[in-house]
Amino acid sequence: MSTPPVRLEGVGKGFVGRDGTFLPVLKGIDMVASSHEFVAIVGASGCGKSTLLRLIAGLDDVSEGTIRVDGRPIAGPGPDRGMVFQQSTLFPWLTVWQNLRFPRALAVNADATSREMWQYLARSHALLDMMGLARVRDSYPNQLSGGMQQRVSIARALVANPAVLLMDEPFGALDAQTREVMHDLILHLFAAEKTTALFVTHDVEEAIYLADRVIVLAPNPGRVDSVHAIPWGRDRTQDLKLDQAFVALKGEILARIRATAAVHADRELMERMTGHGRAPSE
C-alpha cells in the first residue's frame, strides 16, 4: 500500500547529437506520484516533457537514475503503464471495438483466468459506455472525429487496467469546445478509475482543472522547477476556471514557465549574438 505507483530518483536522459556530443535533455528528476493521483506536467516547449513520459513508459532508456512502478524498476514498456499519444495511434485496420479488444489477443494476457477474461470484457463495455463510444463501436478510426479518436485511445489504454496512465498532450490537436468536453469526461472517468495519471500538457488551465498536482519543468536541461498542489477536490465544473483562486494559481504557474523559458531563450540569443559579433572582427 505504501509503495507509490511511480517513483523517479535522479532520472537523467540525454541524446548523442550528430556531432557526437552528449546533449542532456533531463537531469536529476525526482518525482513521486501516489496512488490514484492525477499529476500534470507543464513546461516550456522542448523542456523534455515528452521525453520524461517516454522514459516512464519504457519506450526510451534512462541515462541515469531509476524509475520504479509499483516498487519495481521498469525494464521496457509493459501493460502496467498505458500511454496515450498526441496523435491517434489507433490501428486504422481495426474497428473501435477491435481496437479496445486488441490487448486481449496478446500473450501477456494469455494465461488470464476465465474470471479475469470476463472482467476484461465487462471493462471494455463499461469504458465504451462511459466514454460515449457505444454508437461508434463498429466504426473504423478514420471515420471518427479527432475528439472521438482520442476517447477511444484513452479507453484502449485503460482497458488493461494499468497502474499508471501516461498522456502526452492528448488533447493538443483538438479545438477548445471539444477539449472542454474531454476535460469533464476525464474528471468523470478518473472519479471512477483507480489509475494514477501523469498528464503532459502545455495548457496551464487544462493542467490545473484536471490535476491534483501540477509540476513545472524548467528547460535546458529539463528539471523540476516547482510543484503546485491544487486545492480542489475532483468534482469540478467549468465555473471553477472563473474562480479568483484558480486564476491566481494559473498566473503563478504561467509566471514560473515564463521565467524558466525566458532564461533559456535569452541565453540562446546571447550566445548567438556574441557568436555573430565576434566573427567579422577576426
Partner: peptide, 17 residues
C-alpha cells in the same frame, strides 16, 4: 508509423506480436 509500434508495446505486445 513508429507510434503504432510503440502503442502496441505499451499494451504489452512482444516483438513477435
Amino acid at each position: 508509423p513508429d507510434s503504432y509500434l510503440e502503442a502496441a508495446y505499451t499494451m504489452g505486445a512482444r516483438p513477435g506480436e
